[in-house]
């Protein structure tokens, strides 16, 4: 069990680093949703089931959707290639 917990924690750090430093916004949002899913599994391992349900419903569910809606609104109004250049800066 401890080994599984350590694997999950390392996965968390990998997800956080890749979400932070990935070039494309859409990729970092999706990695962030995976990050919050792993976090919800960690809550189960830490014996806090209430948090697992909330984090799953809220982390990947609602904030994930809001991030994608914002990206859609931005992509919708800004032209495609300018957005690409803008993200990399």
């Amino acid at each position: 069990m401890v080994f599984f917990k350590i694997v999950l924690l390392l996965l968390l750090i990998v997800c956080a680093v890749s979400a932070a430093f990935s070039k494309r916004l859409l990729a970092s949002v999706i990695i962030f949703m995976a990050y919050s899913l792993i976090m919800s599994i960690t809550w189960i391992l830490l014996e806090a089931p209430d948090l697992a349900i909330t984090e799953a419903a809220v982390g990947a569910g609602v904030s994930g959707i809001l991030f994608l809606m914002t990206l859609k609104k931005i992509k919708r109004t800004g032209n495609e290639e300018k957005e690409e250049k803008d993200e990399n800066r």
Partner: peptide, 24 residues
Amino acid sequence: HRNLIKKIIGMNIMDTGVFLFLAS
């Protein structure tokens, strides 16, 4: 990061880090 969406993701990661600290 200068892009606002990256900043918000960073803020979220910071918060979840604090909550992991509290729960553990």
